[in-house]
Design a protein around this nucleic acid. Structure first.
Length: 673
DNA sequence: CCCGCTGTGATTTTT
DNA sequence: TCACAGCGGG
């Protein structure tokens, strides 16, 4: 065995070597769960379990890739290759690409991203709403998404506006031969539920199933896992889930903590293993986290501990306002980098809302501190990437309305808004795609001759590209380059850019895209369809690599985005009532989730943790007074050092004095403890 | 087609 | 306040 089971602690080993029956691994933050998952797979392989029958499901590509890499370091290459490591969505795409025809969709369905979704919903709202009726497209989108994640493929009441929009939306998608992200799950569950042959085929395929971040699964995902894990011999399913109910922070996206809290009801008589030894943080940090999370009523009791010593106290800093809060952090990081010989990468600042990063950025720039913001606009969201992908997608399948709408007049080719609208109306009337609508003789009669000519040319161009792309043994990369060239896309791109820099950046993004396809073809046989799927599912490897490389600077990151990461020195800002917990959590009744969010934040820190709050903050255009977060009083005061920035600034304390004061406090704590 | 005006509304975002 | 969407005018 090339992996070392004895490197695991007792519960870890128990989890890794329990291969049969349901298994619930409650893995607290930083307890080495990825290691357990990979060791477990390596162990199974060593037990001569067929690696082809092992499935590990994750939420993110990042997690799937990380697991793949770690496993590759433990077992034979050909064994590792046989194990399926996939996100829920990628797995569903695989299943649907084979059998979606049974549900009345065509196999070459298009995956709609959120932009496509919003666009379609917006249109349907304007078509459906009576005069005076209003519905926010984004609100509708999220309601529809929630409904689907709950397993509803149709509205409960079609008479309400939202219900009508939902019904029309589903019908439109089907007619467009498109599926959105939620459909990937919904339709897969439907397919497995309604078609025994398909269900049994996949049940036979995977005999050992593992699910990562189980606390984030929604109803559909649980159902999917249940279907896949079910055995025809009546034996309990070999399903191992790993998760931490205390880190469930995606309830607002449909995640059901109950999936992990009530695991026994879904998979009776499981082996339950708790991982509580943390390899990341000091005990001061862990006990602070423990004290906080104990206040959540519904949870599986756990208590993290580590062998890394007590460490420094948690510092709780009160600042007069958000400006001084940011300034304090910037100054401190600059100072500590020198004093404690640290790198900027050793620091992270965590916040509840993206808007909180603005002041910090400003201050960091002012003081010349490099920083990196996680999240924000990604490569995939850039206009040029979406445009070019739409070109490719339409070449593959012109009946993709969202894609076609994107490119029909980009670059401008004389097909006006009015003409498009007319074509769209006709396509609805004739229940056909926009592309087919464009070719209806009926359309020609109602638009200017010039528009007709432009349409004819565009249609011919798409047809020609499609033919070219489908020629046997054709160099598909060359065809894509040709498409970009013949559409004059670069000219239009340059024209629409404010400056040369922007144009260069965007052009290089387009080139990267084609380059990415070329590389994709080298390692995969999915063709253009596969590449477009990979892009829709954000599986672009290059981006992932790039992400790993750029490590320079202080990390500015939301609490949500910080889950799964760790930093030696963390600053957790804006611990104020209304921010954390967020105001809206009170009306929504999600205070527990806010507490978990803070818990996640605290447990990111390895060595030191500084939390800050202000007494006033700029919000909604004015200075508003703030009060400290109600969570603060749930923390253990013995582990916390309170610092008043105002006092500190007015009466600067010499280093030795500060040290002795700290020592005195520590002595006092020890006496009292 | 592009620009600037006005109004609105303001968490979190794995795929 | 500030970002951004939707709109009407040049």
């Amino acid at each position: 065995m090339s992996f070392r089971l004895f490197d695991l602690n007792d519960p870890q080993r128990h989890a890794a070597t329990t291969t049969e029956g349901p298994l619930l691994i409650l893995a607290g933050a930083g307890t080495g769960k990825t290691r357990v998952i990979t060791c477990r797979i390596a162990y199974m392989a060593a037990q001569k379990i067929d690696p082809n029958s092992i499935l590990a499901v994750t939420f993110t590509n990042k997690a799937a890739n990380e697991m793949r890499e770690r496993l590759a370091g433990m077992v034979d290459k050909d064994v590792a290759k046989k194990v399926t490591m996939s996100t829920f969505h990628a797995l569903c795409v695989r299943i649907l690409r084979t059998d979606i025809e049974k549900l009345g969709y065509k196999k070459n369905f298009t995956i709609y991203d959120e932009g496509d979704q919003t666009g379609l919903i917006k249109k349907l709202i304007t078509k459906t709403a009576a005069i005076g009726e209003k519905l926010e497209p984004n609100a509708a989108k999220s309601l529809i998404s929630k409904a689907k994640n709950n397993g509803w493929s149709a509205p409960q009441d079609e008479k309400t506006l939202i219900g009508a929009v939902f019904a029309r939306y589903q019908a439109a998608l089907k007619q467009l031969n498109a599926v959105d992200f939620d459909d990937l799950l919904l339709l897969t569950v439907k397919l497995l539920g309604e078609h025994a042959d398909v269900r049994e085929r996949w049940q036979r395929r995977y005999r050992y199933i593992m699910v990562d971040e189980f606390q984030d699964t929604n109803r559909l995902q649980l159902e999917l896992v249940s279907y896949l894990a079910k055995r025809d011999d009546g034996m309990p399913p070999n399903v191992a889930v790993v998760g931490d109910d205390d880190q469930s922070i995606y309830g607002w996206r449909g995640a059901e903590v109950s999936n992990i809290l009530e695991f026994e009801q879904h998979f009776p008589n499981p082996t339950v293993v708790k991982l509580e030894q943390n390899y990341r943080s000091t005990n001061a940090i862990l006990n602070t986290a423990n004290a906080l999370i104990k206040n959540n009523p519904k949870r599986r009791p756990k208590s993290l501990w580590s062998g890394m010593g007590d460490g420094d106290k948690i510092r709780l800093v009160q600042a007069p306002n958000d400006r001084e809060e940011a300034e304090f952090i910037a100054n401190e990081i600059a100072r500590r980098k020198v004093d404690e010989t640290l790198r900027f990468e050793d620091f992270a600042v965590l916040f509840r809302m993206n808007s909180q990063s603005r002041l910090l950025e400003e201050m960091f720039r002012e003081k010349g501190i490099p920083y990196k913001i996680v999240g924000g606009k990604s490569f995939y969201d850039s206009r040029e990437v979406k445009d070019v992908l739409a070109y490719f997608a339409c070449t593959l399948n012109a009946d993709n309305d969202a894609g076609l709408l994107r490119i029909i007049n980009t670059p401008p080719r004389g097909i006006s808004e009015k003409t498009v609208e007319r074509a769209l109306e006709l396509s609805i009337k004739h229940k056909c795609s926009l592309f087919k609508g464009l070719q209806l003789p009926e359309l020609r009669e109602s638009i200017p001759a010039r528009a007709s000519e432009a349409i004819a040319e565009f249609v011919a161009q798409l047809d020609a590209w499609e033919t070219k792309l489908n020629e046997p043994l054709v160099d598909q990369v060359a065809v894509l380059r040709k498409i970009i060239e013949e559409s004059n896309y670069y000219d239009d791109l340059r024209r629409s850019c404010k400056n040369g820099d922007e144009a260069l950046k965007r052009e290089s993004n387009v080139r990267d895209l084609v380059e990415g396809f070329s590389r994709y073809l080298e390692n995969s046989n999915g063709g253009l369809r596969g590449y477009l799927d990979a892009m829709a599912l954000r599986q672009d490897k290059e981006e992932d690599e790039k992400d790993k490389e750029q490590g320079t600077g202080v990390m500015l990151i939301t609490l949500h985005a910080s889950k799964g990461l760790e930093f030696p020195h963390c600053y957790l800002v804006g611990l104020e009532e209304g921010i954390l917990p967020h105001d809206r959590s009170k009306v929504e009744g999600t205070l527990d989730e806010e507490r978990r969010l803070l818990y996640v934040g605290i447990t990111r820190a390895q060595k030191t943790l500084t939390m800050t709050y202000c007494f006033s903050r700029y919000r909604y255009g004015g200075t508003i007074p703030c009060t400290p977060s109600s969570f603060i009083k749930e923390l253990d005061p013995n582990l916390i050092e309170r610092i008043d920035l105002k006092k500190l600034l007015n009466t600067p304390v010499e280093a030795p004095a500060a040290k002795s004061r700290f020592a005195a406090m520590r002595a006092a704590v020890e006496r009292s403890g």
